[in-house]
Design a protein around this nucleic acid. Structure first.
Lengths: 200, 200
DNA sequence: AAAACCTAGTGACAAGTGTCATCTCCGCGT
DNA sequence: ACGCGGAGATGACACTTGTCACTAGGTTTT
């Protein structure tokens, strides 16, 4: 019996995935959590074989959850679920010891198969992803990323400077660098590109 | 037996929801479609009691699907599923004859209950939503909306002007109007606000 | 037919943004 | 001690964006 913890913020989707998994006789859903923080809390009391988690969640993301489990030497195998447009996360996910990366665009049987194969010790990456992950390394520095994130919310240079405790000129330099690295035409374009690659 | 067609672009989520629904003995999943276009094709051959659809999908969205069904005099009851952040769509959904509006943030039992109540002739709107939908009417004109959409992709004023066959000055006037109507500080901020309200 | 509107455009100005060369510190290695 | 490189800042300049008042040609209203 494979014991699974399902971590996903949208309750409807979470419940549906739990239902899907429990249709398989060899899988048992041990629990559900609405974000990484809640998952960590539950993991103090239960010991699932597999932690199946989404990436984009409030408070603690799926990547941070994977990182915590790796650092804590937890034995549960982590399977990451996400959308194709956020495929850029795959590299970080793998470095945090995730065992599999499944697209939400993939058919549902694929998820079940993946969980079973992971239990056999295999690492599974959706083939569509394996390709796109090989090129494309995140070129942004931490400061550039932060500035870009604020810019994509519509903050002005001055507001970003205040938020980051930097001078206005420095922020403009960072954004200029980011725009040039991403081959964008302006900050908005740059933010769009970075978001799409999963670098924001 | 309530016969349901599930429409949702992410295959994993679609399969999971189908699994969830089929766990209930009074519900039968007649088919699955990956977008509105595919759903319309299937509806030529099958006659479900309920069409359960997501909103944001490629090609034909859930709202457009609802509109088509209403215009074609189709008897299937439409239940819309979406995330809280896109709650602004509720008004348009209702005007297209949708019978219910369910949040993906709601617990999964809620979806089942809603489908059953809709079959009894009730209209169901998630209470959290009913409130937020009452105020807030979309103040944007069609041109303003289009210009803002391009702006949020990082296009420059000149590029937007070319795309819309307008002069640069006119585009700037439209964007300026939109910014002021939405109490935003710039085009990016305006786009963010409009997106959050479901007006983009 | 005059008045009221709507869509589009213009011109001018202020403010914000993008680029680049250059400067100052400060920590680091040898 | 010396040079090197990174982080942050500065100033200058061109270009883009936001605002506003005003114009010109069409439709509707009345």
């Amino acid at each position: 019996m494979i014991r699974v913890l399902v971590v996903e913020d949208q309750a409807l989707v979470r419940g549906a995935i739990a239902a899907l998994l429990s249709l398989d006789p060899s899988i048992e859903v041990l629990g559900e959590a609405s974000d990484g923080k809640e998952a960590l809390r539950q993991l103090q009391h239960i010991t699932p074989d597999v932690v199946l988690t989404d990436i984009e969640m409030p408070h603690v993301t799926g990547l941070e959850l994977a990182q915590h489990l790796q650092q804590g030497g937890h034995q549960a195998k982590v399977v990451i679920m996400t959308t194709f447009s956020r495929a850029g996360y795959i590299r970080r996910a793998m470095s945090y010891g995730a065992k599999a990366f499944v697209l939400k665009e993939a058919p549902s049987e694929y998820l079940i198969n993946t969980i079973k194969k992971v239990m056999l010790g295999q690492k599974i990456i959706d083939p569509e992803l394996a390709l796109s992950a090989l090129d494309d390394v995140d070129p942004l520095t931490d400061k550039e990323r932060k500035a870009l994130r604020y810019a994509s919310d519509g903050l002005t240079t001055a507001q970003i400077a205040t938020s980051l405790y930097l001078s206005e000129g420095t922020v403009r330099n960072y954004l200029s660098e980011a725009i040039s690295k991403l081959n964008a035409t302006n900050r908005v374009d740059a933010a769009r590109i970075a978001k799409q690659k999963g670098w924001l």
